[in-house]
């Protein structure tokens, strides 16, 4: 499904300075029972966000009104574990369009790219700078420019470039997806299948 175009995102960031945030935390398995892609944002970080009686946990960042925005900033190895795309859907459905970390788990990164959430991998030093900047001022602005492949802290002008392959970059800039591409080469695939090794 084609998705929103991603060009430049200017937003405050929500800090989650914990390492190895796994997809079971992002969305616990018991919330994977839907047959449609909707409503997953309500259960984003469910067990960190709510007590068992469904009252909000006051000390969790999503329940703290001073933090908000479209950029989620997580610790190293963000999104490890299960392949559930529901984790990326939950991040998107809650309102995030970009996740920043110093390291991403593979499948989560792919899933994000496939639904139009931009994973931005920065150096550990720059990640630390972002956390520090948000801690000092939760309203501090972060600018993610996909065309330029850069992330900037507006207040100080500190900037870092990030990697993304050209194909995915064009997809995100234009809101295309892989199926659009694959459907266009279906005849090549059919030819390949005739001589496939198995």
């Amino acid at each position: 499904m084609a998705y929103d175009k991603f060009t430049v995102l200017k937003s405050t960031g929500v800090p989650l300075p914990i390492e190895n945030v796994d997809t079971d935390q992002i969305i616990p398995a018991r919330f994977l029972k839907a047959t449609e892609r909707k409503g997953f944002g309500d259960n984003l970080f469910r067990d960190w966000r709510y007590h068992p009686d469904n009252t909000p946990k006051k000390d969790f960042v999503l329940n703290n009104p001073i933090y908000g925005g479209k950029i989620l900033v997580g610790g190293k190895n963000f999104g490890s574990g299960s392949s559930r795309e529901h984790a990326a859907w939950a991040v998107y459905d809650y309102g995030f369009r970009c996740v920043v970390s110093s390291f991403f788990a593979d499948i989560f990164r792919n899933n994000c790219l496939n639904i139009g959430v931009l994973p931005v991998q920065v150096s550990p030093e720059f990640l630390h700078k972002i956390f520090t900047a948000i801690e000092a001022d939760p309203k501090t602005e972060i600018v993610v420019d996909l065309q330029e492949q850069s992330i900037t802290l507006t207040a100080t002008g500190e900037k870092e470039n990030f990697d993304i392959n050209d194909y995915k970059k064009q997809n995100m800039l234009n809101g295309f997806d892989d199926i659009d591409y694959l459907l266009n080469i279906k005849e090549d695939i059919r030819d390949f299948a005739k001589n496939a090794p198995l």
Binding site: S82, S83, R84, E85, H86, A88, D106, I107, N110, N111, N114, I115, N165, Y167, D177, D178, I179, Y181, L182, L183, K186, I189, A193
Partner: peptide, 21 residues
């Protein structure tokens, strides 16, 4: 393992698009 978008790709075209690890 793949995500659901990729499940759709395989159903539709028997292919996925990934960079070689």
């Amino acid at each position: 393992g793949i995500g659901t978008s990729e499940v759709e790709m395989v159903l539709a075209t028997q292919c996925i698009m990934q960079q070689k690890a």
